[in-house]
Every structure is written in C-alpha cells, then in structure tokens.
Computed example of a mutant assay.
Amino acid sequence: MEVVRSSIVLSRGRSRLTVTGVLTGLLLTLSVPAALPESGAVTPERGSAYMGMGVLAHDGIARGATADSLPDSRTGQTEGVDVSSYQRDVAWSTLYGSGVRWAYTKATEGTSYKNAYFTQQYTGSYDVGIVRGAYHFATPDSTGGAAQADYFVNHGGGWSADGKTLPGVLDIEWNPYGGDCYGKSKSQMVTWIRDFLNRYKARTGRAAVIYTATNWWTQCTGNYSGFGATNPLWIARYASTPGTLPAGWAYYTMWQYTSTGKTVGDHDRFNGGTTQLKTFASG
C-alpha cells in the first residue's frame, strides 16, 4: 500500500523518484533520500532494512550525479546486484541476460529476522550461473556481534569453496530504526564489528566482506583502519566514482553505485573481471 504525503511517494519506508535511463537493458530507477525516523515519522518495522537503506537516507545521490553520469563502462569490472525481500521472486535469467554475473541476497538481520525469499533468490541466482553470496544487516543495538555472526551462518550465510559462492557480507551502515550509530561509542562499534568478523572467520574459514559508506564509517568508528588488511571492502556511493574510501583500504573489492527500484535490486560492480570474481569466490 502506498501513502502520499506532501507529494512524496512512500513505498514500504523507501521514498523514491524515478529517472528514466537504461542500464543493461533494464529500467533504472534512482531513489532519492528517505528521511530516517524523526518527530512524527513512522519507524520502519524491524527486519525491513535492506542494503543501502541508511546510505541513501543520509548520503543520497552524490551532488552533480544524474542517471547519465553514473558509470556505464564495464572495462575491467563485473556487473552485480544485491536483493532482499523487497524484490520477492527475482527473474534471474533476465538479469543474467543483461550482463549480471554476481549477486548478494539478504539472509538475516539481527538475531530474529530471516528473508522469506532467501531460497528463491540465493539458489535461483546460482542455478542460472550467477556467482552468489549472502549478506547480514547488522543491528548492533540488539545483540552482540558474535551472536549475529552465528545467526547469519546458521541461516544461509555460510561459504563453500566451489568457486560459485562468495564470502558473507556484514552490512554495517546508518541505523534505520533510531540513532545513527546504534547507541554505541566509536570504540564500542569497532569492538562489535571485530566480534562479528572474528566469529564469522572462525565458523567459515573466510574473512567476511564489510559493506559500508565512508561517511558512516568515519562517524561511527572514528574512521578505524584496522580491518583493511584482512576484510574486503564493499563501498556504497551513488555517484560516478566511489570517492574517498574508509581508512585502511587502498582499493575496493565491490562498489554499490546506484540504489534502484524494487524490481531488479541495487546495482554494483566487482573490481575485476569474471575470472578474478571466481578466484575471489574460491578463496
């Protein structure tokens, strides 16, 4: 159900403005920032968060960026998407035909939410030849990092060295349910993230990818540099370039460069060709 307020269309907590453009044969829908809960605003339901929800609300589309200025060259990089329950049953064969070669599916959030469409999304992408992985939306205000890593691994976030399964992702970004940094100090946030990463590595043998935005990382971890040597970076920035990276990372492994509409998922780039993608998946 959609509710119109002040001429802004609110759809499941995501306000959006459609911009006509073509991306790999699909309609590109760029979202404009949705305000996080303020006085009189409705707080999203726990479990409803998706990758980039907080990034879009705070950073939005970079100043000067338009549909035409978003990256269109695929030289040396590989197209991917990320999806959650918002996309429901995904037409994976269509995405594969458009050039998508890797995908991440939201598996869990906190220690109570599981994506009801996870099987169709995670297995369906694999079945058409897309290299797939799973991500966890972190809620550091609810339970500890190690507990959330366990929940993630136990509900689809594992890894196997088959060359077709990507390492799990910790999605750590602005809190859609309250205070930006989940009520934690910078040092407490770093500890929480470390606890998650250590438990995930112990359970799976792989270092988890960290998905974040530079502004959030700076605000909520003090731009901590200690994970760059061990954990790949998935940077979120909706612009023609990924911009300044968080401290500790000299390069990004993945880049979420646009937040699209519900139908096809957000679009991303892997910083390498398909051979490098499969090598990365293999560990």
Rank of each mutant, 00 (worst) to 15 (best):
T244A: 15
S93I: 09
T24K: 12
A281C: 07
F270P: 01
G261L: 11
N198V: 15
G243T: 04
G156H: 03
E2K: 09
G205V: 05
S84F: 08
V128M: 04
Y135E: 01
G52N: 07
A57E: 02
T20E: 12
N198G: 10
G243P: 01
R16L: 15
T139H: 07
R16G: 14
P232Y: 10
A65S: 15
A147D: 11
V190D: 05
H155E: 07
V209L: 05
H136R: 02
T279F: 04
T105A: 13
P44A: 11
G179Y: 09
G76H: 04
P33V: 05
Q219W: 08
F280W: 14
P37I: 13
R16W: 12
G183P: 06
V83E: 05
R132E: 04
Q276I: 09
T214W: 01
Y104D: 04
G272V: 09
G248K: 01
T204G: 08
A146C: 02
Y177E: 08
G99W: 04
V9K: 05
Y251T: 15
G222A: 05
S84M: 08
H155R: 10
E2N: 12
A91W: 00
V3W: 10
M1C: 09
A67L: 10
I193N: 06
T279C: 11
L17A: 15
G158I: 12
K262F: 15
T260A: 15
K164P: 00
N223C: 01
V42L: 13
N175I: 10
Y122T: 06
S93W: 05
R5P: 01
R74L: 15
G145V: 08
A41G: 11
S73M: 01
S93Y: 00
V9F: 03
P246V: 04
P167Y: 03
D89S: 12
G13N: 11
P176H: 09
F227R: 05
Y251E: 15
D127Q: 15
G25Y: 01
Q188V: 11
I235S: 11
